[in-house]
Computed example of a mutant assay.
Amino acid sequence: MRTKFNLLATLLMVVLCVGFTSCSDDEKDEIQSDKTLALLVGSWERTETWEHTYSKYDPLTGKTETVTETETYNIVFTFNSDKTYSRYRSGEYEETETGTYNYYQDTKKLTLGDETGSYAVTILEISDKKLIIDDDGDVEEYTRKK
Rank of each mutant, 00 (worst) to 15 (best):
S118D: 11
T84D: 03
P59K: 10
Y119R: 12
Y119T: 14
E48D: 12
S90A: 01
E45F: 06
D128E: 12
E97I: 10
Y73K: 10
N74K: 15
T98L: 03
L131Y: 10
H52A: 03
D114A: 07
D136E: 14
E115P: 00
T47S: 15
L124W: 04
R46K: 13
D34I: 04
T72F: 01
E94V: 13
Y85M: 08
T47I: 15
G113A: 15
G99N: 03
Y119E: 11
V121W: 14
T96N: 08
L110E: 07
A120K: 10
T84H: 07
G113Q: 14
E94C: 07
L110G: 04
S43L: 02
T61W: 06
A120L: 06
L124Y: 04
T68I: 07
W50G: 00
G113V: 05
T111Y: 10
S55G: 02
T72M: 07
K130R: 13
T116K: 13
E95G: 11
D136V: 11
G113T: 12
E69F: 01
E51D: 06
E125Q: 07
E94N: 14
Y85D: 02
K56H: 09
V67L: 03
K109Q: 14
I133G: 02
T49F: 04
Q105L: 10
P59F: 08
P59V: 09
L112N: 05
K35Y: 01
L112T: 02
R87V: 05
H52K: 12
D82Y: 07
N102L: 13
I132V: 15
D106F: 11
G62C: 06
K130N: 06
F79M: 03
T111S: 15
V67H: 03
V67N: 03
V121D: 09
D136L: 12
K83P: 00
T72G: 02
I126G: 04
I75F: 01
D128W: 05
T72S: 10
D128S: 11
K108Y: 08
Y54V: 01
G99K: 03
S55Y: 15
I132Q: 10
D134T: 11
L110K: 09
T116Y: 15
I123G: 01
D134S: 07
T78N: 08
S81H: 04
F79N: 01
G42V: 03
K129A: 09
